[in-house]
């Protein structure tokens, strides 16, 4: 897209994102009301139902004595002020709880995404270039295997291998508190703790991107402009990089946007396996405690993360593809 059109494009995309976020809030609200029982009882779950004071607070929070539309309005207003409710179990505001855990999750999903996209595109490109050879077969089989393996099980197997038997890497938490490390030492400690969970989360998506990249590269390689490039004497390596790969990346970017939500969802499983102190772990703890306020909050925040990530991928796509005109 030409740069002069960028502000208008951005504005439209931001407005759309806001609309999606509002829809998610409404969706949350409907969920609470669709559940069997009165919303306060639902939200209190097992943990706080016995506490009349808490129940009263919940009823006030949702405005349960008011008509439904007013309730929606109260709820919307609350969420937009980042008031995601109060966790009786943890005796803390949900928003605060999630914000405390957010950096850990961002670190994990970010690292996993990098592993997945760089490894996946590299493997897919290699397979496409050597299509029909043993390298292609090996990559295809690996991708197929990771694509069929449950995330949490990969995590457990990696723990079994690298922590239990080889004792190379830590399998639990984000850092070792007994080390009392700071600065670089802490970073090194976190990095070591990050390897297994990030690889676990990354492998599945690596398989996805490898398959996608291979398929789209083979498709693009059949197109006329690639033949044009060869006909003008462009060396094979450059044909693949500048012509085939660049065009093949467009669907990969689109897919990365679509997959973002899945990645965040996967982090719940991985954080559970590795006791990684992020919002996934928080969600699991909330699940065990039937603390639905927190669960709803996690759903909302992760959705917002995905919407923001989609905004980024759309922008990237628009910058790469000159044909993008309107949203």
């Amino acid at each position: 897209m030409e740069l002069s059109r960028l502000p208008g494009f951005l504005l439209r995309r931001v407005l759309k994102s806001v609309a999606v976020i509002l829809a998610i809030v409404v969706c949350n609200f409907l969920l609470i009301h669709a559940a069997p029982g009165d919303p306060a009882t639902v939200m209190a779950g097992q943990s706080g139902a016995a506490d009349p004071q808490y129940m009263e607070q919940l009823r006030r929070q949702f405005g349960l004595d008011q008509p439904l539309t007013t309730q929606l309005w109260i709820y919307l207003k609350g969420v937009l002020q980042l008031d995601l409710g109060f966790s009786h179990r943890q005796q803390a505001g949900v928003a605060g709880l999630i914000m405390d855990r957010l950096p850990a999750t961002l670190l994990l999903t970010g690292a996993a995404f990098l592993i997945a996209i760089s490894g996946g595109v590299a493997m897919g490109a290699l397979a496409a270039r050597r299509v029909g050879t043993w390298a292609d077969s090996v990559i295809t089989v690996i991708a197929l295997a990771f694509y069929a393996t449950p995330l949490f099980w990969v995590g457990l197997m990696l723990v079994l291998l690298f922590s239990v038997y080889l004792e190379w890497l830590p399998s639990f938490g984000m850092s070792d508190p007994s080390l009392n490390a700071t600065g670089l030492a802490l970073a090194w400690d976190v990095a070591q703790h990050l390897v297994l969970p990030a690889v676990t989360l990354g492998l599945f998506y690596l398989a996805v991107y490898a398959r996608l990249t291979r398929a789209t590269m083979l498709e693009v390689a059949d197109q006329d402009f690639v033949k044009t490039a060869r006909a003008k004497g462009v060396p094979e390596g450059r044909v693949l990089r500048a012509h085939v790969l660049r065009n093949a990346l467009l669907p990969v970017i689109t897919f990365a946007g679509i997959q973002a939500g899945q990645l965040v969802g996967g982090s719940i499983l991985v954080e559970t396996v590795f006791a990684w102190p992020g919002i996934g772990r928080l969600a699991f703890e909330a699940l065990l405690a039937r603390d639905y306020q927190v669960l709803m909050g996690v759903f909302f925040i992760t959705s917002v993360m995905v919407v923001l990530f989609n905004l980024l991928t759309d922008l990237l796509y628009a910058l790469i593809d000159p044909r993008v005109e309107v949203a």
Binding site: D224, F225, K227, T228, A229, A242, H243, N247, P322, R323
Partner: peptide, 8 residues
Amino acid sequence: MTALNPLM
């Protein structure tokens, strides 16, 4: 229509 690289 298809003989030129659309991204270049």
